[in-house]
Design a protein around this nucleic acid. Sequence first.
DNA 1: CAAAATCCTGACCAATTGGTCAACATTACG
DNA 2: CGTAATGTTGACCAATTGGTCAGGATTTTG
Lengths: 221, 221
Amino acid sequence: MHETDQQYLSRASLTKKRTRIQAEKEETILDAALEVFSTFGFRGATIDQIATRAGMTKPNLLYYFRRKRDIYLAVLRRTLDNWLTPLEALDSEGDPLSEIQAYINRKLEMSRDNPLASRLFALEILQGAPILSDVLTGQLKLLVDQKAAVIQRWVTTGRLAPIDPYHLIFMVWATTQHYADFETQIRALLGGTIADEGHYDAALSTLNTLFVNGIAPQSGP
Amino acid sequence: MHETDQQYLSRASLTKKRTRIQAEKEETILDAALEVFSTFGFRGATIDQIATRAGMTKPNLLYYFRRKRDIYLAVLRRTLDNWLTPLEALDSEGDPLSEIQAYINRKLEMSRDNPLASRLFALEILQGAPILSDVLTGQLKLLVDQKAAVIQRWVTTGRLAPIDPYHLIFMVWATTQHYADFETQIRALLGGTIADEGHYDAALSTLNTLFVNGIAPQSGP
DNA sequence: CAAAATCCTGACCAATTGGTCAACATTACG
DNA sequence: CGTAATGTTGACCAATTGGTCAGGATTTTG
């Protein structure tokens, strides 16, 4: 499915076979594009910037992706799965607190290991999600509705303190993605980022304190 | 201080006095500029867009602010105070839990009442804070260091659960600003924003549950 | 009311940028 | 090896955009 999707974007793939060079160059381009788009946004990025960072000329890059928008779309698609996976893994059969803790863990890891992807989506959504709006109201909404129902069940059966599942999910997103999206600010204030182990541990431990204490079922009658 | 600062930006203010028309037009321009910059970022915004939204021609706008960057700077400056005020109001003499609760309140109100300002700063910081970096390492760091020290004292004296003050502040920022910055996503998932009273109350109540339970001092052994 | 100051605009310019294309270079393959 | 397919590039184009300017319109002020 991804394979065929990409065929529509990368023009060079109107060739009979997907050649070795195509595979290599397209990946190089998308890597470079992720860096540039996640820093400057769609309009702020230029094809030349991406081409330079990918070590090729502009017309050469445009041989692989005919339009700027095609590059952008391809980067978003390639990154989308990574973005959704952590929530997908939330298991309705597991222990509520551990599940949510594990979810926070995965999200914070993603912010550390792939901050560019986080910033790419942040920029896209900040600007009104012109490209991703379908994903938001479709794929993402389905997933969130489903997982929110799981959390709601945990609350109803008393295995979690009463809390709105949607807003709980928002809080997890907000707090974890913050470390990627506002990295510049974090660095200015802490003198480092969560790429530094000490800061990572402090962030994780704060998250755990907050969420575990925050949503553990209240003991007592 | 603000007055004189602005003189450097708005060219028309090389006139002998600040005229009525200058005051009016400059405000109109900055309002329009906030809308446009907070949606498209600095590079994505065009002077024409701002001029159109301000109901004037491009050369006319450029009569008041000679360069695009001047408009951007002026908008950032005008909004900066609002951005810092909520944290400044955190009172070291108050009750820790109430103070933090009140802080969260103010921040969420700001996200509701001035989402454009929040998105403007978010875009600026996401892109590496090319303009604001001095503010981050200067004014903001001073303020945050000071308030973090206050919170640290609360922790040390056992009036707050042990938690890293910096990361606690980050969590407050993240969760409250999320509703402004990711409004598009919230709308896609909830069918509304915190401008709707129901959603606002749900968000606030979730925040309170999380933070109050999360950082209340653990009842004794 | 008239001169001075301020305000406004159409026309224009140079730089940037997305995208094309013909011609040449390289690679794959029978 | 030779030819067909694929890859690469300099030169170029049209649209967008930041910014200028001369001159006319309006407002302020004595």
